[in-house]
């Protein structure tokens, strides 16, 4: 069976005019992560390991809104969240409200593997991180100058700014997003992981779609999905689960009128849909190994591009 991997660094109204000095570092990171994933999959690593590996790299890149480089709450603090899910076993783990953990995605995996629970948040999650001995840093480590400026501007505009999308007049750097990765390994195992700092100027304590299984993150034996965009819209449309639910419950694509459209409608989220999806869909039988990187972003009224990997 062929392996496949897809990753994303957030969705939104990214301007085509994004200057090269802002575009290139992000693209370079995506390419590096894709190479990393490809090498890992070629050498037989499990999908779950690969998605964790890739999301850790993206978390460590200050150009994306996860790990170092996470956007700031209204209080000027960082509250990171992440989730991971294994498609075959449906095992999953999630964390919210992290302020010191260097790689939130790895803590989510530890919640999955080392606790009887799925989801730990805030002080309890921080305490668990210390128990497990994962790498932690002072909260200031995660705060970048660019994000301080972003918060200042968001406060000036007196609004909660969607991390990736709202045009900020003076600073195109605001377009940084949630990160995620989906993979299927050559043994046919699917996995997904998503990580984020959330929204610029979010209220302290706000939880978005990323750690909510079925909303921002979901995998089963049919597909693996990582969503990004307006968290509140993704939650109420249970976007990640709905991609899987359509594959599972609906007749094969083509025989169901509007099947794809329904999935898309789910993503579009009733008029305020700024969301992108990532799907790794299992397709047995063909021996071709392939990978493709799709930057699934939606521009204005155009339908979402890409998002599917088969």
């Amino acid at each position: 069976m062929g392996w496949a991997v897809a990753l994303h660094g957030g969705a939104g109204d990214i301007p085509r005019s994004l200057p090269p000095d802002r575009r290139e570092p992000r693209l370079a990171t995506l390419r590096r992560c894709l190479d990393l994933a490809t090498a890992a999959l070629r050498s037989g690593r499990a999908a779950l390991d690969v998605v964790e590996l890739v999301v850790r790299e993206l978390e460590n890149c200050p150009h994306y809104n996860a790990g170092v480089g996470s956007v700031l709450t209204a209080d000027g603090t960082v509250e990171m969240e992440a989730a991971v899910m294994d498609g075959n076993t449906l095992r999953c783990g999630a964390v919210s409200g992290l302020s010191t953990v260097v790689n939130a995605v790895s803590l989510a995996r530890l919640v999955m593997e080392k606790t009887p629970h799925i989801y730990l948040a805030f002080d309890g999650a921080e305490a668990f991180a210390r128990e497990q001995g994962v790498e932690t840093k002072d909260p200031s480590h995660f705060i970048t100058e660019a994000n301080k400026e972003r918060l200042r501007q968001a406060k000036e505009a007196n609004r909660v700014q969607v991390d990736y999308t709202q045009p900020i007049p003076k600073d195109d750097n605001s377009r940084v997003g949630t990160v995620g990765c989906v993979a299927i390994d050559s043994a046919g195992n699917l996995a997904t992981a998503t990580s984020t700092g959330g929204l610029v100027n979010k209220m302290a304590g706000r939880i978005g779609d990323t750690p909510v299984i079925g909303a921002g993150t979901y995998a089963n034996a049919l597909c693996a999905v990582s969503a990004t965009g307006v968290g509140e819209a993704i939650i109420r449309h249970t976007v990640a689960r709905d991609v899987a639910a359509l594959l599972e419950h609906a007749p094969p694509a083509g025989t169901l009128p509007g099947g794809r459209r329904r999935a898309r409608r789910g993503r579009r989220a009733a008029g305020q849909g700024r969301a992108g999806g990532r799907v790794g869909r299992r397709r047995g039988g063909h021996g071709v190994q392939h990978h493709r990187h799709v930057q699934g972003v939606r521009h204005g009224g155009r339908p979402p591009r890409g998002g599917h990997l088969a």
Binding site: A94, T115, H117, Y119, L120, F122, D123, G124, G214, I235
Partner: peptide
């Protein structure tokens, strides 16, 4: 464990409502 979140607050897991139906779940959250 302190900090544990279960299914109840998770839209789509413990709670859901749409044009077709409304649902509330209970039991083993995970």
């Amino acid at each position: 464990m302190t900090g544990r979140i279960g299914d109840s607050p998770l839209i789509g897991s413990g709670t859901y409502a749409c044009g077709a139906c409304a649902v509330s779940c209970t039991g083993e959250g995970e």
